[in-house]
Structures are given as C-alpha cells and as structure tokens.
C-alpha cells in the first residue's frame, strides 16, 4: 500500500516538473518534438533510478559512518557525472541502437537538476507515506526515484504533444517560443494541482 502511495504522490501530486520545478531545462529545451521528449524521458528515468541507488548506498555506508556529511554535494555530483559517463560507455558496447537513440541526451543529464535533486531528497527529507514521518529505506527510495522519473516522463510527453500542436498556430510575435510554452506549462500545472490532497 505504501508503495502505491509513493507512486501516486510522486507521479501526480508532487510532480517533479510541474510542482517541484526540478529539471525545467530539458522540459523547455527538448520538448519541441514528441519523439525527442520520449527519448529524454527514457534516459532520465534510467539515470535517476541508478543514481539514487548508488548515492543512497554512498550516503548510508560511506558518508554517514565516516561522519563527513558535508561532502554530500561534492560526492553526489561526482558520482552522478561518473555514472552517466559509465552508462554511456556500457550502453555503447551492449546496445548501440539504444545508445544512438538517446544520443546527446545522455551526457546532458549530468547537469539535469532532477537527478541531483532526487538523490538529495531521498537521503535528507522525511516522508509521511501512510504513517509517521520517517526516512525512506532503500526499497522505498528506489520506488520513489522511479516514480518521480515516470512523473517527469508523463509531464514531458504531455507538454511535447501540446507544443507540437501549438507550433502550427499563429501566436503574437512577442509570445513566440518560450513565453507561449510557459503559459502552456502553467495551464498544465493548474491541471496537475487538481491532484493535490489526493495523498
């Protein structure tokens, strides 16, 4: 039951893009076409889940016992950068087709704040899913990370679909490009506000 609550909360109620504002750069940058949005979402999903697994273990078994919690920011960003690089190398060897499909998105993910944001959230914030406030354990963290990236994918794909249609319409000159995209995002965020209070 708790896992279901985590998933609903991360995908709909506290959507990472539309209510937490993490990962806005790819949200605005690569949402022009539906196919690239799907590729980006896939890559982010993969990296967020993997990065959360590694940084969670790093925090609990290295930083906490050694009492060097202040190194968290530096350690996490290095781990994420190294991880992205490694995923890139492995993917190139194992599945060249997936590698070429993800293309430029893979290296870009290092500086996507959603990845670092989720990694930091699961080790620092207390959650109240079905009971008392508590720190997430490893299983819950992984479910939370995966669900969050699903929420990223959902918002990204919806937004890309809207923008594809929007591109065919006439908009005033000053609104062209980003402003009209932001207004679309605002309406989408209002729609997602309807889910608040659900969990």
């Amino acid at each position: 039951m708790e896992y279901i609550l985590i998933i609903i909360s991360a995908v709909f109620v506290n959507n990472i893009l539309l209510s937490q504002f993490l990962g806005i750069c790819p949200f605005l940058g690569v949402s022009n076409k539906l196919s690239t949005a799907v590729g980006m979402s896939g890559a982010v999903c993969f990296v967020i889940t993997l990065a959360t697994l590694v940084t969670y273990l790093l925090q609990r078994f290295v930083l906490d016992p050694l009492n060097v919690g202040f190194l968290q920011t530096i350690a996490f960003i290095l781990v994420i950068a190294a991880l992205v690089q490694m995923v890139e190398i492995v993917l190139k060897k194992i599945s060249p087709s997936l590698y070429s499909a993800l293309g430029i998105f893979l290296p870009l993910i290092t500086t996507n704040c959603a990845v670092l944001g989720v990694a930091l959230t699961v080790v620092t914030k207390e959650f109240t899913f079905g009971g008392e406030a508590h720190m997430l354990n490893l299983g819950e963290s992984l479910v939370y990370a995966f669900a969050t990236s699903l929420g990223f994918g959902l918002a990204m794909i919806l937004f890309a679909g809207l923008r594809e249609t929007l591109a065919l319409n006439n908009v005033p000159k000053a609104f062209k490009g980003v402003p009209v995209a932001l207004i679309t995002a605002s309406i989408l965020a209002m729609a997602f506000m309807g889910f608040s209070g659900l969990v």
Binding site: F21, A174, V178, L182, A185, S186, I187, A189
Partner: peptide, 18 residues
C-alpha cells in the same frame, strides 16, 4: 503556487521583449 510561477515568468518575458 506552481502555475503562477510559469504564468508570471511568461508575461514578464513578453514585457521584457516588447
């Protein structure tokens, strides 16, 4: 709230451009 952030930024951007 969240939607207002997008909306306010969008209109400020338009005013800035204009």
């Amino acid at each position: 709230l969240a939607p207002g952030a997008f909306l306010a930024l969008a209109y400020l951007l338009v005013l800035f451009r204009k």
